[in-house]
Design a protein around this nucleic acid. Structure first.
Length: 750
DNA sequence: GAACGACCTATTTTT
DNA sequence: TAGGTCGTTC
């Protein structure tokens, strides 16, 4: 029990209170993961609980992997039998075992967001609706939020409230879209991410024998990041733990930042009502940050009304105050941040990996990236396009999906003519229409292509069907790696990429090889029992994040949104774009009136830092193409001034621009009153490397450099209103990207 | 199917 | 401003 000695009293309480409902409120940096892992280790080692009877749920793959790793360190290979993973992966596993009860094939496909949206786009088109009114994004979000609240399409279409909501929003056909979308997914033998939870609820509601089985199996249920659960997830855990009632939830209401996708902070605020005998443990000691950081964070979050009472404190050093820096423009903000990072690294002898720059929106990364690049500081961006979203990867995966599930419509559309085999849009339309007319599946139509389609199309389809058939037979005899290799080779995908000798083509070929390597690793992993292609597909369908631990670079600064920073920590944290309407986001406040969630987001951002926080804002920022003058964020004012310092060393000279904001004026006068030295405004220096190019100087064939995309080639010109834009081809993740740009280019070669 | 011109749109994000 | 998309033309 040595491992328990390092814990403080409440942490120990959190570990030892194994029986009955427990809620662990874990402040930022309070050792939450530690308590969770030790709790599981304690159950297994000291209480002799079979790992098979423990269910531990997390939100992200990263969190699940980290916890599994740490538990393995404590309890060894026993941990293998733990039921631990993300909500989606655990319930996908259960659904796969019980799929037939819901009318799904056990090898059902999991649609990712791209699949779902492209299906919605098609449905909108097929129903003859206006795709500007029914935007795929909006429809998807509406359906998703209904599913997350466990509102089926039947309920949705019959409830007058939703109907009048949609009518008021001038989207009266939303219910119909919801229904058709569900029908199509079902026919395709596919579940989207939300279905994995929705259908688990259906399964447990309609099949009490199944519920009963899992209720008795899972004697101990643990939920991490509980503040992020939605209703659907909450009800599943509630049902599962209703027999043994050993449910432990761990979370921090102050860090609930996912309401926009259905997370309900009420789950954590009302947990006590569902479990009157609830034991509440509060982890309030912060081990991560300095006193200044903890206190500043507290002073901000205490303004929220909806929260559980707690007092986060630390016995760490007082540390340096939070430092506020002002820039005149967004580009200058980047420069200030870059040079501050450089100075700190040199003075304190730190690695660049100990710095993070956090922003509210992804678009803010541009200015920071440019500045870092100019100073030759390496950086990595978290988020963005993941490996599995790259075209060539998704192509191959869709092949694999279709081999496993011939009903998978999205996969079918993607691969039917890839590589080109003479099956054009008209043939595809014929297939889909025939399937619809005869109420049979697309696969059945293709199997009888002669009678439904005829002609040359039928022959091409016949070859395709034969290919898929032979691959299917392979998949029944061989493991995932052998099957995938056969698919890549026999489909002609690999050859097509191999024949492409351009740099991008080589890249794509390597990416496909990398995917095959990943499958090989999966097959060779002794812990994996089921080495079939289906098992592999199930696993990767739920991996969506880019985080690749072997890509760790100690010499790179991390750039990311605040959302993706959750759960991480850095010595130095720069929070940029501290401007009203940007952070807090104007949209968030005007459409959802949710200032409190924005404040929690700010809280999350500050509490990532171990040693020091910098806040920066610009007086002017490009937004939607136009420079816009900005007010400093209200969150700056909300920090107790005793933990805040205004930087004095930004520049030696007074700038020309007048102080434009009242807040800045007030700040300056209050500093003068307190006898502090007022910082001079920073000097604006126009960039010399990348100048806004006069498009008349550009012409087809020129090689240009873009600060973000690197080198590209001008392929032509484009008229956009009164402007001329250059059309430039860049290579991004192996995909060609056409950029229509008329600024920030450097001519490399005419 | 590339090239061209015209037009539209614009959070946060895990699974 | 950056970026996408779509119909028309060659």
């Amino acid at each position: 029990m040595d491992y328990l000695k390092s814990l403080n009293e409440p942490q120990l309480d959190g570990v030892l209170t194994t029986e009955g409902p427990t809620m662990i409120i874990a402040g930022a940096g309070s050792g939450k993961t530690r308590v969770l892992t030790y709790r599981i280790a304690y159950l297994i080692k000291e209480k002799g609980v079979d790992p098979f009877n423990i269910l531990a749920l997390t939100f992200t793959n990263k969190a699940a992997m980290e916890m599994r790793h740490r538990i393995e360190q404590e309890v060894g290979s026993d941990a293998r039998n733990l039921w631990m993973g993300t909500f989606h992966s655990v319930f996908a596993r259960i659904l796969r075992a019980e799929a037939e009860k819901l009318g799904y094939p056990s090898n059902f496909t999991i649609y990712d967001t791209d699949d779902s949206k492209s299906l919605i786009k098609k449905i909108v088109k097929e129903l003859g609706l206006d795709d500007k009114v029914y935007k795929a994004n909006v429809v998807y979000n509406r359906i998703s939020s209904a599913k997350n609240r466990l509102i089926s399409w039947q309920e949705y279409t019959s409830n007058p409230i939703y109907k009048s909501d949609d009518e008021n929003a001038l989207k009266p056909e939303m219910g119909r879209l919801y229904k058709v979308y569900c029908d199509r997914c079902f026919k395709a033998g596919a579940m989207d991410f939300d279905d994995l939870l929705f259908n688990t609820n259906v399964l447990f509601r309609d099949h009490l024998d199944v519920l009963n089985k899992y209720q008795h199996k899972f004697k101990y249920v643990l939920v991490d990041e509980f503040q992020d659960t939605n209703i659907s997830q909450y009800l599943i855990t509630k049902k599962l733990s209703s027999v043994h009632r050993n449910i432990a939830v761990v979370g921090d209401d102050a860090q609930s930042i996912y309401a926009f996708r259905g997370a309900d902070i009420q789950n954590i605020l009302n947990f006590e009502k569902d479990y009157p005998e609830l034991k509440v443990v509060k982890l309030e000691q912060n081990y991560r940050s300095t006193q200044n950081i903890v206190n500043a964070a507290n002073s901000v979050i205490s303004r929220n009304k909806a929260q559980l009472p707690k007092n986060v404190w630390t016995s760490n050093d007082q540390g340096e105050p939070i430092e506020l820096m002002r820039a005149t423009t967004d580009n200058e903000e980047g420069k200030i941040v870059a040079s501050s990072i450089f100075e700190n690294k040199m003075q304190k002898q730190l690695d660049y990996s100990e710095f993070a720059v956090l922003y509210r929106t992804n678009s803010q990364s541009r200015a920071i990236e440019e500045a870092l690049r100019r100073m030759n500081i390496k950086y990595k961006i978290v988020g963005g396009l993941s490996f599995y979203q790259r075209k060539e990867i998704k192509d191959l995966i869709c092949y694999l999906r279709f081999v496993m599930n011939h009903q998978d419509e999205e996969a079918f559309r993607r691969i039917i003519n890839l590589p080109k085999r003479g099956i054009g849009q008209s043939t595809i339309d014929k297939i889909v229409i025939a399937a619809f007319d005869h109420d049979i599946s697309i696969w059945e139509v293709m199997n009888n292509a002669g009678s439904f389609i005829g002609g040359r199309g039928a022959e091409a389809i016949g070859n395709f069907v034969a290919l898929i058939r032979s691959l299917e037979i392979d998949s029944q005899r061989k493991d995932a790696f052998e099957t995938a290799t056969a698919v890549a080779k026999n489909s002609g995908l690999l050859k097509e990429l191999y024949d492409d000798k351009t740099i991008e083509g080589l890249n794509r070929y390597e990416n496909v090889q990398e995917l095959l390597n990943a499958i090989k690793e999966f097959v060779d992993n002794p812990e994996v029992e089921d080495k079939s292609l289906g098992a592999f597909l199930q696993q990767i369908a739920l991996i969506t994040d880019v985080q690749n631990s072997n890509e760790e670079d100690p010499e790179a600064v991390t750039l990311m949104t605040i959302h993706s920073a959750k759960g991480l920590e850095f010595k130095y944290v720069y929070i940029v774009g501290m401007e009203e309407d940007l952070f807090p986001s104007q949209m968030m406040i005007s459409t959802r009136a949710d200032l409190e969630e924005e404040r929690r987001l700010f809280y999350v951002a500050i509490t990532r830092a171990q040693q020091k926080v910098y806040l920066t804002y610009a007086l002017s920022r490009y937004r939607f193409g136009r420079p816009k003058s900005c007010e400093p964020s209200r969150f700056i004012e909300e920090i107790d001034p005793s933990y805040l310092k205004v930087n004095k060393l930004l520049s030696a000279r007074e700038p020309q621009a007048p102080i434009s904001s009242n807040f800045a004026k007030n700040l300056v006068s209050s500093m003068r009153r307190q006898g502090q030295q007022v910082p001079p405004k920073p000097l604006h220096q126009p960039s010399t490397d990348f100048v806004a190019s006069d498009t008349s100087k550009l012409s087809t064939g020129m090689k240009v450099e873009h600060p973000k995309f690197g080198f590209g080639k001008v392929t032509g010109m484009d008229t956009d209103g009164a402007n001329k834009k250059a059309r430039i081809l860049f290579d991004r993740h192996g995909e060609k990207v056409l950029l229509l740009s008329f600024a920030k280019l450097r001519i490399v070669e005419s």
